[in-house]
Design a protein around this nucleic acid. Structure first.
Lengths: 153, 153
DNA sequence: CAGGAATAATTGACGTGTCAATCGCTTATG
DNA sequence: CATAAGCGATTGACACGTCAATTATTCCTG
């Protein structure tokens, strides 16, 4: 059967499906708990986490820091600004640039969200696996990441 | 430090982040290749795969089969119908019901998509890991899934 | 220093997902 | 057999993501 030779076996495909579907379910559950318990989406949390380390950043640096496309960040910041979590300010030295900074309400929401978030990670990820499995998960992630980075730089 | 006692350690949190971010990147890359090379999104593919096994299904059964909410499926079928991939028909025995069936174009698109899809899975997942790591990934997925199912049935 | 290339950020269009509400049909019950 | 409860499916509103185009500013280079 030329052409099918290098396709995944049945077992490999089953592993793929289980893996990808379960990680998606896990992400969605942790994200859902975060949102339900704190009112912040995972995206909000990522933005506030970055801002909590810097307190004020250029939009572009923020995007690079969290690994988002600028347009995605721009849309997200628009939504967050509407909800009063962050605010944007002009940059004096470069009139194209914009600073992003958390509002008091935003900082408060983030502070209130960290423990629930960590708790969800513990309960749904850490507690589900043995220490060896957590180490294996980290190694698998590293191998996948390396392969992804190498496959399209 | 009471209250922080049961939160994840630094290492556990790093493992969580690497794991969840990498699996997300992996999903997005496989999905992106599928879409670029075949014109079908992962959602389209899941729907067509289910239909390829049944060739005609009730909307509700289809949703259950692929594990989607009915409203999600309804939206998705609307888009797929607009693109001529599937069509909906009334059900004679229950006028509330609707049958979904692939069009000829839909079947053709799906058939043309299976090999590219499998190839992407092999190149980006199977080839990135050792056989032992693939087995470990499947076990981790099973453990996570079991824990998720048990934590909120 | 004039004018085009590059950069910062936003915008618009559209696909995707969730939640709550709705609509029509079927079914069970008084 | 009337009618309320329940079910199948869709819809609308909105959050989230990506891509391509746009706007405004700065930088570079002849």
């Amino acid at each position: 059967m030329p052409g099918t030779r290098r396709l995944p076996t049945r077992d490999q495909l089953a592993a793929w499906r289980d893996f990808i579907e379960t990680t998606e379910a896990l992400r969605s559950r942790v994200g859902g708990r975060l949102h339900d318990e704190t009112g912040l989406s995972p995206g909000d949390y990522a933005v506030m986490l970055a801002l909590s380390e810097m307190s004020e950043m250029r939009s572009s640096d923020l995007a690079a820091h969290i690994g988002w496309e600028r347009s995605r960040l721009s849309h997200h910041l628009g939504r967050m600004e509407r909800r009063g979590l962050i605010q944007r300010e002009d940059c004096a030295t470069d009139n194209r640039g914009a600073f992003v900074r958390p509002t008091a309400a935003g900082t408060e929401a983030f502070d209130a969200a960290t423990v629930p978030h960590l708790k969800a990670v513990r309960e749904l990820f850490v507690d589900a696996l043995t220490p060896a499995q957590i180490a294996a998960a980290a190694e698998i992630a590293a191998a996948l990441r390396a392969h992804l980075d190498q496959a399209r730089p």
